[in-house]
Every structure is written in structure tokens, then in C-alpha cells.
Amino acid sequence: MWLFDVFAWLYNLTPFTGALLLWFLVLVLTACATMKYPTRRGKLVGFGISVVGAVFILGYLETLVLSDTGKEIKDVVKNLVVMSLGGLGSGLLAVAISDGPSKAEIEQTRASIRNWGLTVFEYLFVFILVCSLVLAAICLLLWLLDWPVVSGQEVTGLLLAFLGAASGCAIVSYLRRLMKWEQLGVAVLFGLLLFLLPVYVQAIWGLVSWSLAAVLGFHGVAGIAMGWTVWRQRREWRRS
């Protein structure tokens, strides 16, 4: 169709058309976010959009194969992206930091953490706890039977993951009863999760090398069972 041919001709007119279109799109999205939500959170969202967009555009520019003249023009486009989007993001971040959150925003953030943040962490820790406990029992039995795939390292790692997940569940329960320090608690839970995931993956790596399908199938069944349990629990809460 001739209309699309015109757009294709305009797009291929210079190798920088895509980068300039992305630059304009990021500016529009940043402006929309900050204008629709003129709060500290909206400014932080705008900062994130501008920074991520700038990094993406700069990465896109590095993939272009250009002549010597094109490389000089690319430097100009890169400076435009860095100065405009980088300056915009820095300004939004400075304003967001200097303003400080209002009392209503603090209460809204704390309520969101209590309603969603702690729940998500609880589900993740329960999933790791159940899976590590079941796998630890199976691996311990196989290790005692001198099965060559399983060693004491896998059993120790799974038990460590189980203890860490149990600690995470205990922290979530304590934070819900305490009704304060939600931000600090989420940071602690996130750090604990970052520690547990490599430990858990390293612990089941021997089983993965033996049968990837069995490991994926076990975790798939566990995930489906947990999802079904969460769905039933949510439905019961809505009824009550």
C-alpha cells in the first residue's frame, strides 16, 4: 500500500529515524507520567522512564553500522539523548528527593506493602519452603542409599534454603503483627530472597543434571498447587 510505502521511505531516510522516534516517545511517556501523577511517586516513575529509555536508545545506536559521516552524526544524536533525557531524569529525581513524601503518600505506600508486598514475599517463601523440604527429604533418603547423583552438598543446601524460607515466613508474620517498619522489612526480605535463590538453585543443580524434566515437572506441579490454593483462599476472602 502506498501509505505504508511513504512511512517506510521516511523511516529509511536516515539510519537515525528509529532512535529519534524512540527519543520522542520516551519524552511523551515521561511527560504523561509526571503530568498525570504530579506527586513524588510520579516524578520517580518519570525518572525511571527517561533513564531506561535513554539507555535503550544509546544501546540501539551502538548496533548501527555507519560510515564515517554517519558516526559523526551518531555522536550528535547521542549527545541529544544524553543531554535531554539525562537532564530530564536528573531534574525529576532531584525534585522528588527534595520534596519528600507527604504523610498521605507514606500511608499509601505502607498500606500497599502490607496488602501486596508482604503477601508476594510470603507466597515466594512458602513455595521455597515447601519445595526445599520435600526435595531435602527425598535427597536425604537417596543420599543414605548411596545414590550417585545426590551428595551431602545438595542435602545441606536444601536444608539451608528451608531454614532461610522459614525465617522469611516468620519475618512476614512479625511485620504484619507489628504494623510498622514495612519499608525496612521489605528490604530485609528482598535481601534474604536474593541470598536464598542462588543457594536453592545450587542445591538442586545435581538433580537438574540428572533429569531436568523431573525437576521442572516437580516445580510445575508445586506451582500449580500453590496457585490453586491461593485462588481458593482469595475467593473465600471475597465471600467473607
Rank of each mutant, 00 (worst) to 15 (best):
177 R>T: 05
181 W>A: 02
144 L>R: 10
119 T>C: 07
117 G>R: 02
112 S>Y: 14
95 V>L: 06
174 Y>P: 03
119 T>K: 12
129 L>A: 03
109 T>Q: 11
77 V>R: 03
160 L>V: 09
79 N>V: 09
126 V>L: 03
102 S>F: 04
131 C>L: 09
112 S>T: 08
93 L>K: 00
111 A>I: 00
120 V>G: 00
115 N>H: 13
151 S>P: 09
105 E>I: 15
158 L>M: 02
174 Y>V: 15
115 N>D: 13
153 Q>F: 12
118 L>C: 05
135 L>N: 10
180 K>V: 08
87 G>I: 13
131 C>T: 13
114 R>Q: 07
152 G>C: 00
184 L>N: 10
143 W>C: 07
141 L>N: 11
189 L>H: 02
151 S>E: 02
112 S>C: 05
147 W>G: 00
129 L>N: 06
159 L>W: 13
77 V>N: 01
132 S>Q: 11
161 A>Q: 09
150 V>E: 01
190 F>T: 00
118 L>F: 04
136 A>H: 02
146 D>V: 07
82 V>Q: 03
107 E>W: 15
86 G>P: 03
133 L>R: 12
171 I>S: 01
84 S>K: 04
119 T>F: 15
172 V>M: 02
150 V>K: 12
180 K>H: 12
139 C>R: 11
169 C>K: 15
165 A>G: 00
175 L>W: 08
136 A>S: 07
89 G>H: 01
183 Q>M: 10
104 A>D: 10
136 A>W: 13
175 L>C: 07
125 F>C: 01
99 D>Q: 13
122 E>H: 14
96 A>I: 00
129 L>Q: 07
157 G>H: 03
137 A>W: 03
177 R>C: 05
108 Q>C: 05
91 G>I: 10
88 L>S: 07
138 I>E: 08
78 K>C: 04
111 A>R: 08
163 L>M: 10
84 S>W: 13
118 L>H: 04
104 A>K: 06
163 L>D: 01
95 V>D: 10
92 L>R: 14
163 L>A: 08
182 E>K: 01
164 G>C: 05
103 K>S: 10
139 C>L: 09
158 L>W: 08
123 Y>W: 13
101 P>E: 06
146 D>N: 14
133 L>G: 09
156 T>H: 06
102 S>H: 02
111 A>Q: 09
188 V>K: 12
133 L>S: 10
102 S>P: 05
89 G>F: 06
162 F>N: 01
110 R>F: 12
133 L>F: 11
87 G>D: 04
144 L>G: 06
170 A>S: 09
97 I>F: 12
185 G>C: 11
141 L>R: 13
149 V>R: 14
169 C>G: 05
153 Q>P: 04
183 Q>H: 14
177 R>N: 07
146 D>I: 11
98 S>T: 08
150 V>C: 04
180 K>L: 15
100 G>V: 10
123 Y>E: 01
130 V>E: 06
166 A>T: 03
178 L>K: 15
81 V>A: 03
157 G>K: 07
162 F>G: 03
108 Q>K: 14
82 V>A: 07
187 A>Q: 10
168 G>R: 15
97 I>R: 08
140 L>H: 15
95 V>K: 13
100 G>A: 00
175 L>Y: 05
86 G>A: 12
91 G>T: 04
99 D>F: 10
95 V>C: 01
